[in-house]
Computed example of a mutant assay.
Amino acid sequence: MAPRKKSKKATKKNPEKSENDLEAKYRRSILDVALLQDQIALQGECVLKIQSDRTDLKRHMRNMEQNLQYEIQDHRDINSDLSRMYKTMHSDLTNKVTSLEKEVSHLQEELVLCQEELKRVKREHEEVKQEKDGIISDLQCKLDNMEIDHEKILHETLNGLTSQLSVVRQGWEVKSTSLHQKYKERLAEFGLNALDI
Results as ranks from 00 to 15, higher is better:
residue 165 L to I: 05
residue 51 Q to I: 04
residue 138 D to T: 05
residue 126 E to W: 08
residue 13 K to H: 03
residue 96 K to Q: 11
residue 178 S to A: 15
residue 17 K to T: 01
residue 107 L to D: 00
residue 176 S to C: 12
residue 146 M to G: 02
residue 115 Q to Y: 02
residue 136 I to W: 03
residue 70 Y to A: 15
residue 173 E to M: 07
residue 8 K to A: 12
residue 165 L to S: 01
residue 132 K to C: 03
residue 165 L to T: 02
residue 21 D to L: 04
residue 3 P to Q: 05
residue 25 K to N: 01
residue 170 Q to P: 00
residue 141 C to G: 15
residue 142 K to A: 02
residue 31 L to N: 10
residue 165 L to R: 04
residue 163 S to L: 14
residue 59 R to V: 10
residue 35 L to P: 00
residue 169 R to A: 06
residue 52 S to T: 11
residue 4 R to T: 02
residue 53 D to G: 04
residue 26 Y to V: 10
residue 138 D to E: 06
residue 186 R to D: 03
residue 80 S to K: 05
residue 18 S to H: 09
residue 173 E to H: 07
residue 5 K to W: 03
residue 120 R to A: 10
residue 152 K to I: 09
residue 99 S to Y: 05
residue 153 I to A: 11
residue 62 R to Y: 06
residue 80 S to D: 03
residue 80 S to I: 05
residue 169 R to N: 12
residue 144 D to W: 14
residue 157 T to S: 08
residue 70 Y to L: 15
residue 46 C to D: 11
residue 58 K to P: 00
residue 131 E to L: 11
residue 185 E to L: 14
residue 122 K to P: 00
residue 93 L to G: 00
residue 58 K to E: 03
residue 43 Q to F: 10
residue 109 E to A: 09
residue 53 D to L: 13
residue 126 E to F: 14
residue 144 D to C: 14
residue 136 I to L: 13
residue 173 E to Q: 11
residue 192 L to W: 02
residue 172 W to G: 03
residue 39 Q to K: 15
residue 20 N to E: 14
residue 51 Q to K: 09
residue 54 R to T: 11
residue 64 M to H: 13
residue 149 D to V: 10
